[in-house]
Design a protein around this nucleic acid. Structure first.
Lengths: 123, 123
DNA sequence: CTGAATCCAACGCGATACTG
DNA sequence: CAGTATCGCGTTGGATTCAG
């Protein structure tokens, strides 16, 4: 590609992955409290152990979240958004609001397109 | 998945595809004027003919863009955002702004993580 | 409890060639 | 000019298994 450094592309590549935005949302809702791994899992229906782990480590690597381990056995691991992560939550929330307000319109547009493409499903 | 109907998931699946958000941006910048296919291609460096076509048809199917064909030969096809598409541009622009202001921080966080992971690349 | 490692199916998307 | 059709590679991410 011509500009893989385009900041918007880079950001969309991240929040476009399946669980990233949901993790940010759950962490943001819990803030300023930390959230444990298992609790995150419970609040993200459908996420697999592996993908939650991968997603969280991406957030940490990007400086969007922080990790704290209690050296007990078994260990307790806590996560929370950094200031950077919290600042991302703002435009992300705006996107969510738009989605909740307008996705129904998009669904209707799709239904209309389908109806025009297959006008004879009454066979 | 538990809730594939989650509006936010659906929206992110769309704008997460490689060219969708860029197409929306270009169309928004040109508004209220229409933009021809070739002109879109020129303004989206790196996009292939196929992916631009696929992207635009997705936008149309979702009711975010409209298509107008001049029945000349060769044909001229014009695109523009619908009101729905224009409304999406608002939160999308917010995301772009965030990206431009903060992606450098994310890059730095990544560099730091890499440095800690490979402290001995001076071999 | 919190992970890492492996395997594999599904999808995104780019290159290329063909059409009206 | 503005597409559509086909092919193939790389990546995403789910299931499963092993480990501290």
């Amino acid at each position: 590609m011509f500009d893989p450094q385009c900041p918007t592309r880079q950001l969309l590549d991240r929040i476009g992955t399946k669980w990233t935005s949901m993790a940010v949302k759950v962490l943001a809702e819990a803030a300023p409290h930390e959230v444990r791994f298992a609790e995150l899992r419970r609040r993200m229906p459908g996420v697999s152990q592996k993908m939650l782990s991968v997603t969280l480590h991406s957030l940490i690597r990007d400086g969007l979240a922080a990790r704290r381990v209690e050296p007990t056995v078994p260990p307790r691991v806590h996560y929370q958004l950094t200031d950077l992560g919290s600042s991302l939550e703002v435009p992300l929330a705006a996107l969510r609001t738009w989605a909740e307000e307008h996705m129904a319109q998009i669904d209707r547009a799709n239904a209309t397109s389908d109806a025009q493409a297959n006008p004879a499903d009454r066979a």
